[in-house]
Design a protein around this nucleic acid. Structure first.
Lengths: 111, 111
DNA sequence: TTCATATACAATCATTTGGTTGTACGTTAG
DNA sequence: CTAACGTACAACCAAATGATTGTATATGAA
């Protein structure tokens, strides 16, 4: 069931859910600035490697980062394309609001 | 602990978490287009009134809608201000990415 | 006043989430 | 080859989420 921007409702769920955690947002920030391996990322946080690994998986399943094998490492990179899709979704809500205001203005202008 | 745009990390959590559910996004869409009471909203979904009431509460706590008493009803309106804040947050990630690309370009230009 | 409506809120329950530890496997360095 | 490193994944646990039903309270209409 396609909803918008070629995204299903579940995919949108995953994107916003992935963004709803401070650790994941920080991982996203880091990997947008520079690629990093999972273990490199894990070193930055006060939690187990497996926990960070899971956070990366959530971001990956949302399409917010990509995971590319390189030797024994997995290189994580932020994916600006999905960020853009999220922005487009938010734009729609603003647009809906503007339409309402325009209608109100039109109504008032009838006087 | 202020993070950005006058929002704490918890507040950002709440905004994205609230957006990570199709029913809540639909409530947001409706209330951005036109104000509605909780019972009016509840009539639109195949779930209990209490469930919809909870979804509205999640949106309210995130600041994505406002709840204003009017008689025995509560009038719900979408709040474009918080949508804008979420957009600003996403803008930052794109900006971080652009900086990385600029640095790469600069590096390549050194030849 | 009386009754229906709109909301609030508590208790409950199944599922998901965010974390842990432990084990296994592939890869690189010595 | 062996040892260390990086990752994958399963099992487990506490807490949060998304839904339910039931009860209480306030408002509006008759």
């Amino acid at each position: 069931m396609i909803v918008y921007e070629g995204l299903t409702s579940d995919e949108v769920d995953r994107i916003f859910r992935a963004l709803a955690d401070a650790t994941r947002r920080d991982i996203l920030r880091r990997t947008m600035a520079a690629e990093a391996s999972v273990s490199r990322l894990a070193a930055a946080y006060d939690m187990s490697f497996a926990a960070v690994q899971k956070h990366v998986a959530v971001l990956d399943e949302a399409g917010l980062v990509t995971k590319q094998p390189r030797g024994r490492e997995r290189i994580i990179r932020g994916n600006p394309e999905t960020i853009r899709k999220a922005q487009d979704l938010l734009d729609r809500y603003e647009e809906i609001w503007r339409c309402r205001i325009d209608q109100l203005d039109a109504l008032l202008a009838e006087d």
